[in-house]
Write a protein that binds this DNA or RNA. Structure first.
Lengths: 329, 329
DNA sequence: AAAATTCCATGAAACATTTCACACAACAAG
DNA sequence: CTTGTTGTGTGAAATGTTTCATGGAATTTT
């Protein structure tokens, strides 16, 4: 072994006085005589040997690296997801390659090509391009967006979350509910929140209305809408369900501007379970997405050995967390 | 080329009717006859060829991947940094491998070994283990923590930030200043915020005091301290500088509990420039860290070809942003 | 026009691993 | 004592690149 370079398996083999293949077996948990195993591990320890995962990847095809493709890493929901995925992968001895797309369809496609080139063992994608070309040669799991039965999709139980929000608001005395939605206009699992809201309202015979807008429209139309529904200092609704915590936050400010008190006059429930400073309180009462489970499930499916019968959609249970914008005991 | 497998350079060479080396040159931007270049690119296009960066990494040593090691990905400052680093690297044609440590010294060391094994081209570390063993074989840039002159460290101008906070508070009429600090007790660049605060107060002849606590103590001691400094409904201080936005947020709540109005009775400045929901308003008036520049600078130093004369510490200018907790015009 | 020089495509070797056919030893069965 | 069987270490081949010494063609020089 030359000085200054990293030791190789060959060096370890020589040091331990065993064959190259034996060293390989030891580092791949292939049964080997206990005495041999010891000798190899001792030699490796002494030389400071570490497997070169690029050489391994070249021959074996497996690289122990998984790519996570996200719109961005700063949005707290995405950040929490990235953190969870990274931890989950580490627990399974894998590394995480991260790529951010800025929600740009072309960038998404390019990211996929980029990480594909890097020979990752799989891709977890949180993408918005409905026409995304998903590589057939490499396992892919989608979060929050369903493509087709052949592409496993992991998501929160968005429909159930919509129902849960209605249930909680109704339990707390609300009778006239409003659903507010903002987001991209590519169809995705999160859109089912509205369906759950409507189904639950109908089942309970509650008055309800919905206003669904696109990101491009901004938040102003909500303000206009709310203002036009105030009569005699009272809002026509006593409960509002927003499709994201961020929207709920804006709405809370708008209501304050209109002189309406939350939660006394209007109760408010958001969605996501986003936390202040990443790990502190909630911004509002909210339907919490099981971020840890989303990560865990995605990774499990991605690394599943038997890929012959994978689920096409998995919905994970959401929960309710009070955050001061509802009348909780 | 066998069906179902990825095409290799050899396949491209055969398809294009050129030699293997020629194909390699084309994909490494090594000058090659224009007609050859065309033929190769056409063939690659036709076959859907992509360089196998593991094979490349094996032979060339360069892998086009950089590792980012962070305590976690959900804290908004870290999340913003991760996002910026990822974007900066993408712009330079590199991928980002991310590892989270949970601020555990052992985990930090293990992360380094893990990514080292992955043959990354460099490591950007945001670590807390002062005794961290930094691999000599691989470029390393530290953010916010200075190890020794041989390890380049990139940080905000924390001292200047402390001064700036005092300056802004003084300009807005504050005369009796308080510095509050919470954090780990490993020494790091962020500790200089206090030095800047004190220097600026002395230079201006302002009354001032400081309370520096450890994470373990929690926030309660601050509450006790503040309460004990209220006399006749007035706080002994009219300006508070907190070493993080998060602390400032807590302090804001504590002040409200004490019946003190912000900013009328007490003005408050935080540090970090952390944004609500990752990209919305600030939590408080704050000293903003230049996250984009931190990322850019770190990457530049990391990928610098000539590693003979690297800076040992680079401080980047911070700025002030009003956030409602100060009396700004 | 011949010689010298430049240019540039060529393809074999090297990189660090995994895999697999092989051989050898040990042991059981006939 | 021979034959068959099992178990396990061995080392060559293969993986897809980059690099570099080589040589042939084109161009310049004398």
């Amino acid at each position: 072994m030359k000085r200054g370079t990293m030791p190789t398996m060959k060096d370890v083999a020589k040091e331990a006085g065993v064959a190259l293949g034996t060293v390989s077996k030891v580092f791949n948990d292939i049964p080997v005589g206990e005495d041999y195993r010891r000798r190899v591990l001792d030699a490796a320890q002494k030389l400071g040997y570490q497997v070169n995962s690029y050489a391994r990847g070249l021959k074996a095809g497996k690289t122990g690296t998984v790519a996570l493709i996200l719109p961005n890493a700063y949005d707290p929901y995405f950040a929490a997801l990235a953190d969870s995925v990274c931890q989950t992968l580490a627990r399974r001895g894998c590394r995480m390659l991260m790529a951010v797309t800025g929600s740009d369809p072309d960038a998404e496609q390019q990211c996929i090509r980029m990480v594909e080139q890097n020979k990752v063992d799989g891709i977890i994608g949180l993408t918005y391009n409905p026409a995304l070309e998903i590589p057939a040669s490499i396992p892919f799991v989608s979060i929050d967006r369903y493509f087709n039965p052949a592409v496993p999709c992991v998501a929160s139980d968005n429909f159930g979350g919509g129902q849960l929000a209605v249930e909680k608001l109704a339990e707390r005395g609300c009778r006239r509910l409003l659903f507010l939605r903002i987001g991209a206009d590519v169809p995705g699992e999160p859109d089912k929140r509205m369906g759950g809201f409507q189904a639950a309202c109908q089942a309970r015979g509650l008055e309800h209305e919905a206003l669904a807008l696109n990101d491009r429209d901004g938040y102003e139309p909500f303000r206009v809408f709310l203002r036009s529904h105030v009569e005699g200092g009272r809002l026509s609704y006593d409960g509002i369900f927003c499709n994201t915590d961020r929207l709920a936050f804006y709405v809370q400010n708008m209501l304050a501007e209109l002189g309406l008190r939350v939660p006394e006059d209007v109760q408010l429930v958001g969605f996501d379970g986003v936390r202040r400073f990443g790990n502190d309180g909630y911004y509002c009462s909210t339907i919490v997405q099981p971020v840890g489970q989303l990560a865990e499930t995605s990774v499990n499916i991605l690394l599943e050995e038997d890929r012959s019968a994978l689920p096409s959609l998995i919905c994970l249970p959401v929960s309710y967390a009070p955050g001061g914008t509802t009348l909780d005991g």
